[in-house]
């Protein structure tokens, strides 16, 4: 399995010869989603803590529990959806380059690309937890002000480092996806690079824009 990280070309070259199986990719995406859920749980806690002066304590307790759990499972579901969507996008773009091979194989290989995201989620969770244990949470009286109040929090250097690390791991995933797509859709390395590069570049640029760097 370590080969997918160090030498994805050989890993997928060997894997393509075998039978298609989504068992391991599902597990990888699920683990990635579960760890990402921890970060989502922590961020949901911030939003609700902002309303601590507005909501009664009982309501706040219930809202924290429900909100946290919802955010956690939401993150898991979003990971699974993201997996399918990104695989579909790759499948679609690769079709322009006359890619071959079925969607299940693409889905399987894209799933392996989520392994770096497990590391990314772990590091992000640690950084967010570390950040939230020192930050002063603003109190808002209007739920509509939460977004406005969260904005400077998200621009904190610690949060920006978390996003930067996320981008690095996304690039690592993209690297795996390039070789995965190359073998799953029988593309040239160049075409696989373009197939993966377009949506990943768009995602990275959007993330940088969100950070306020651009």
């Amino acid at each position: 399995m370590i080969e997918v990280l160090t030498n994805p070309n050989e890993f997928f070259e060997a894997r393509v010869k075998g039978e298609e199986s989504l068992r391991i990719p599902v597990l990888i995406v699920l683990v990635s989603g579960l760890i990402g859920g921890i970060s989502a749980f922590l961020m949901a806690g911030i939003s609700l803590e902002m309303l601590s002066e507005t909501l009664p304590p009982e309501a706040l307790g219930i809202a924290s529990t429900i909100g946290g759990i919802s955010a956690f499972f939401g993150a898991v579901i979003v990971s699974l959806i993201f997996w399918v969507v990104i695989a579909a996008i790759f499948f679609g773009i690769s079709s322009i380059f006359k890619g071959e091979g079925n969607f299940k194989r693409t889905l399987e290989f894209v799933g392996y690309g989520f392994i770096p995201m497990i590391f990314s989620a772990i590091i992000s969770a640690v950084l967010i937890y570390n950040f939230l244990s020192t930050v002063q949470i603003p109190v808002v009286t209007d739920p509509a002000e939460i977004r406005e109040a969260l904005e400077p929090l998200l621009k904190d250097p610690m949060m920006q480092l978390s996003s930067f690390i996320g981008i690095l791991f996304m690039l690592w995933s993209a690297n795996i996806w390039i070789f995965g797509l190359k073998h799953a859709r029988n593309l040239s390395t160049k075409n696989a690079l373009i197939t993966v590069g377009i949506p990943v570049a768009a995602y990275v640029l959007y993330t940088i824009y969100q950070l306020g760097v651009m």
Binding site: I123, V135, Q136, L153, D156, P157, M158
Partner: peptide, 21 residues
């Protein structure tokens, strides 16, 4: 700037980022 942090990253965090990169 809205947080109790100094607004600068700790050196350890910068090193972590560089190592990961």
């Amino acid at each position: 700037q809205g947080t109790t942090s100094s607004g600068e990253l700790p050196v350890s965090m910068v090193i972590l980022g560089v190592v990961i990169a």
